[in-house]
Design a protein around this nucleic acid. Sequence first.
DNA 1: GTCTATAAATGGATAGAC
DNA 2: GTCTATCCATTTATAGAC
Lengths: 186, 186
Amino acid sequence: MDRKTEILQLTTKMLQIKGFDSFSYSDLSQEIGISKASIHHHFKRKEDLGLALLLFIKEGTLKRTEHFHDLDTSPWEKLETFFNMNARVVENGTKNCPINALQANVAVISTEMRVILKEIVQLEIDLITSILEDGRKEGQMFFKGKANNHAALVVSTLRGAMQQSRTHGHTFLNQTIEQMKINLKV
Amino acid sequence: MDRKTEILQLTTKMLQIKGFDSFSYSDLSQEIGISKASIHHHFKRKEDLGLALLLFIKEGTLKRTEHFHDLDTSPWEKLETFFNMNARVVENGTKNCPINALQANVAVISTEMRVILKEIVQLEIDLITSILEDGRKEGQMFFKGKANNHAALVVSTLRGAMQQSRTHGHTFLNQTIEQMKINLKV
DNA sequence: GTCTATAAATGGATAGAC
DNA sequence: GTCTATCCATTTATAGAC
């Protein structure tokens, strides 16, 4: 793995724990073991780092979306996989979801970053929309109203629960996911 | 209104827009029109300010909870009132919910603050639990599973949607609230 | 690519006068 | 309660050597 990727991965972690404004080049430098100036060599300004981070996350989200498309498992299994993947992101509740962290910091990031952030959220909503549509069509899932609106609700719930898990622990997240599943059962 | 309350109200606003680590005594000082040192006179350290802020928010939450208890409207109307109050908190989508902001910053606030933060969230979940229980008992609402678990889901959804509204606008929040209501209808 | 050194600005916090 | 002045630590960022 090259240095740039190493920095981006650590940045994601730092963002999840502290938030965008609360981690510093000094944090990155110490954990990686190179000087602050070296971090600046790879990402001149913090905004450059932030922008690269968002493109990095967007790329990952795109890859995952395609991956879901390729899976030949049932809609229900896809949804469960999606939930499990997200539950792993916050680990034991110490980390926030990076998207949550960025949305909380929306006022202190650049317009450019905000645009990509919105695109990432939309990618997830679109993915869940198609899973819900398939699930309902195949008689595996039950929900009222439009699939698109219900997908927005599912993503909101998941994000909200991921964040609440920071004070209420990861069992809170698991219970909320279970409740979502109970409500989606036919 | 006394100065302390004035500072606490502005702090709430700043927290909602920027987050706890991203607003400064200088921000407060400029907007109120007194010096930084004067802010320090009322709240010596930023942690004191943060703690006072959480007690301030908790007090407000307690008052609101009692208010809901006193209302002699239907469970359904109570739930709608609760949603409307929260929708007003984020205004046009520029502000985050203060609880969201603090949960995103959980790693940079004191343990004391975290404890109260958790209590506030629990107060809300308990309130919604009792509203849901009444609503189901009276045949006004439908949901599967325990009222307590569904209340956790409702609060998570609301918080998640409030935060998503920062990138997706307040219509996103309104739509998600509508979808929750559609799902709760008998 | 990495380092040391350093600049310039900001943030939290205190001393002491009025 | 409010002010000016000041301190110290941190943060972002750059210059220039290796």
